[in-house]
Structure formats: structure tokens, C-alpha cells
Design a protein around this nucleic acid. Structure first.
Lengths: 123, 123
DNA sequence: TGAATGTATGAATAATTGTTCATATATAGT
DNA sequence: ACTATATATGAACAATTATTCATACATTCA
């Protein structure tokens, strides 16, 4: 697996700060939370989905509106909306043949805003 | 490419709300910002990097500490740190043979916190 | 009921990504 | 200068992901 294996048993190389590491292992965030958190960010880590969320922040829209706006197939949009739905980033309501999507809650745009702050700060 | 092509020229199907779409196209976020934003989130969208950032939030650490803490090869850690560095999420300082990493700024943990709020809200 | 339309989804493909392995670079001590 | 060690990095491989295509489902209207 790792560097430890490369060292000889005698010379005691590879020298992490054992005390600190032990303390941090105590504070370790649960694997479930790590996984969910990374999944949420992964969902936000796609240009198409960013554009969808940005549009939905202005106004509730149906698949066909988004398809027109982003110049993509409604199939592609629908697939992406499913990802956003599964991760509770958007919600929807049906009206006749159309399905209108909107942001699920205010956290979504907060994340958006924090992300913007980060990329804009050193400009 | 998309649904528009499937419709016949006569019946005028595929009916996005043209007015709304036109307005939203005005408000469209620039492609550069969309790209950078999604890149930032993409970087946060990996369990290993989440763990690294969480650990660095507690204390500045070197590659070898992180390698021990996360039970991964220092090569893997180093690769991930490069990704974090390139996206200005961590900074580093050299001390002898070691390289100590820390969070680049407070935005990082704000993003983290917002992400947590999102996943925890409906529990 | 049958045709048209908006949306959803499974499968396939192409592109991207994380880790490993081998190797390189840099620094410290002898 | 030589050895040991911490970190970095290119290439390869496996796994994941976004889009397309074909098709299915659901709703409206005739």
C-alpha cells in the first residue's frame, strides 16, 4: 500500500507526527458524511448543472425551457435534472405534460455564492 | 442534436416559453465563471480531498502526516494536494524536507459548512 | 381510442478522473 | 560526494461520468 512499506524496519523512517495524527483520527469526520458531502459537491461540479441551477434561481422552468436556454437535448437536460433531484438540489411540480423544476432550498444558492466568492476573491 | 429537430415544421411543437428564455439568456452567467465555479466544486467533490481539507482545518500538516492519517500512499496524497493547490484551496510552506499544507483561506471552510447544512437539513 | 407531445430512462460510447507504479527532484546528514 | 528521505510527477489502468440514441411512459386533445 504505502510508503511505510518502503522503509527498512530498523531505521524508523517515514516520520509522521504520531501524536497529532492520533488526535486527528479522533476528530475524524464520519465516512458517511464525507461521502455525502463529496457527492453534493460532485453534483455541483458540472458546467451544465451549474447553468441549470443558475437559471432556476431566476425562475421555475420546465425541461423544454432549459433545453432551449442551454441549447441541449431535452434528454440530456432530463438526465441532469434527475441527478439534481436525487441530490435534493431541485424539486419539481407537474402541470399537464410539462414538469416545472425549481431550486429545492436556499442552501443551494448559498453554496453557489460561497463558490463565487472563492473564485472571485483573487481577481 | 435536439428535440427541435424531431418536430415537424408545420405543427410548431416544442414550446419553450420564448419570452422567459430570451430574458434568461440576457442574465446568463459568463462561460468563464460557469467553468471556474464547476471546477471548484469538482475539486471538492472527492472523498479524499474532503478528508484532507477537514484535517487541514484542524491543523497544518505535511504530506506524510496526511498519508498516515488517511492511510494512503504519499504519492496519492501528493497528487490530490496538487489539485487542491492548483485550485487555490490549500497553500504550503517548505520546512527542510517536509512540505506543510494548510487551508488557503476562510472561504474553503464556508463552502464546507454550507455543504454540511445542505446534507444535514432533512435528517 | 389514437395521435401528438413533454419528459424519463436504459444502453452504449467517449471523455474524464483517481490511484498505482516507477522514477525524478530536493533537502539533510554523514 | 554519497545516502537516506520527503515530496512530486508522468504514464498506465480502472472506474466513473456526460451525452447521445432509441425507446418508453404519461398527458392532452381530437
Amino acid at each position: 500500500m504505502l510508503s511505510q512499506e518502503k522503509m527498512c524496519d530498523v531505521c524508523e523512517a517515514f516520520d509522521p507526527n504520531k501524536e497529532v495524527v492520533a488526535l486527528l483520527k479522533e476528530k475524524k469526520i464520519s465516512d458517511d458524511v464525507v461521502y455525502e458531502l463529496s457527492e453534493t459537491f460532485k453534483v455541483l461540479g458540472d458546467p451544465t448543472r451549474i447553468k441549470i441551477l443558475h437559471a432556476l434561481n431566476e425562475k421555475e422552468l420546465c425541461v423544454c425551457d432549459l433545453s432551449e436556454l442551454l441549447d441541449m437535448s431535452s434528454s440530456a437536460i432530463s438526465h441532469q435534472l434527475r441527478v439534481l433531484r436525487n441530490n435534493k438540489l431541485v424539486k419539481y411540480r407537474k402541470e399537464g405534460r410539462s414538469v416545472y423544476y425549481s431550486l429545492d432550498d436556499e442552501h443551494v444558492m448559498c453554496l453557489f455564492g460561497q463558490g463565487l466568492s472563492h473564485i472571485l476573491e483573487d481577481k
